[in-house]
């Protein structure tokens, strides 16, 4: 565990922001999904990104750990520029936890093995240490009794909590959440959000793409509203969700907060319903 800590120190200056994004652009062929994004996340800050589907918020998140290769611009994570062609991206990714909409647990491994495999193969921790850390993190997400369960034996909410525990087991400096509750049945959302709330309380740096407005309002230090590949506005939850200054933000919030009042076609187009879960 000690060598991991020194790894981090090598990453960059302690006072550098957790995430710094400058002039980020991303195009898939002709389609420009991100059209010049500038923003940063401070250490210990919880930032929620909201916006309609297709606004580029998931792509932004995936550019932070280079699951998507930016077309232009610079992304720096804790002082390490990940867009530098010479960077060892695998080393940077160890420090960035990521939670997916579709959980992406490894179905051939038990919950505990899901938590230990990267610790052992990537961080080179011994089995006893990896299992100790894994069990502690399962405990932390309230699933201490599910160590030997396979993902298929768990509910969606439990799977997502195991996925969070898996990311935490790598002792990440920051966590990325890509619509973590969008694939869940409504009654299972609460447990996952509770775990995320706990993380935020413990001071974890978090960048969260979400449709959970109440979560954003309650937990986020800052809310970023994206539309059409640009950041339309950002600020405290009170400002952005409570008193948005842009018309586009107001329209979006009206639809999300009161779906019944929205035009049917627009809502169906938005968020989790429209996105296929790949499992």
């Amino acid at each position: 565990m000690s060598d991991v800590t020194t790894d981090r120190g090598a990453g960059g200056a302690e006072d550098a922001p957790a995430i710094d994004v400058r002039g980020l652009r991303k195009a898939f062929g002709e389609l420009e999904v991100l059209r010049g994004i500038d923003f940063s996340v401070g250490r210990g800050e919880v930032v929620c990104v909201i916006g309609p589907s297709g606004s580029g918020k998931s792509t932004l998140l995936r550019c932070v750990n280079l699951l998507e290769e930016p077309s232009a611009g610079r992304v720096t994570v804790a002082g390490t520029e990940v867009t530098d062609p010479d960077v060892d991206i695998d080393r940077v990714r160890r420090r960035i936890g990521m939670v997916f909409q579709s959980f992406n647990l490894f179905p051939h491994l038990t919950a505990l093995e899901n938590l230990t495999i990267a610790q052992r193969r990537v961080l080179r921790r011994g089995r006893p240490e990896a299992e100790r850390i894994g069990r502690a993190n399962l405990e932390r997400v309230g699933l201490g009794d599910k160590a030997t369960a396979y993902p298929a034996q768990l509910s969606g909410g439990q799977q997502q909590r195991v996925a969070i525990a898996r990311a935490l087991s790598m002792d990440p400096e920051l966590m990325l959440f890509d619509e973590p509750t969008s694939a869940l049945d409504p009654e299972l959302v609460g447990d996952v959000l509770a775990v995320m709330r706990g993380l935020a309380r413990d001071g974890m740096t978090m960048l969260v793409v979400t449709h959970e407005m109440s979560f954003a309002r309650e937990v986020a230090d800052r809310v970023v509203f994206m539309d059409g590949g640009v950041i339309v506005e950002q600020g405290t939850p009170e400002q952005v969700v409570g008193a948005p200054s842009h018309e586009r933000t107001r329209t979006f919030l009206a639809r999300v907060l009161d779906p019944a009042a929205a035009e049917v076609g627009e809502v169906a187009d938005d968020g989790a319903a429209g996105r296929r879960v790949d499992r």
């Binding site: 990714r93 160890r94 960035i96 997916f100 490894f106 990267a118 193969r121 961080l123 990311a167 499992r279």
Partner: peptide, 13 residues
Amino acid sequence: PKGQTEAARSLGM
């Protein structure tokens, strides 16, 4: 599924 590779890579593999 592609998500399996993404999950593995995002853990630093």
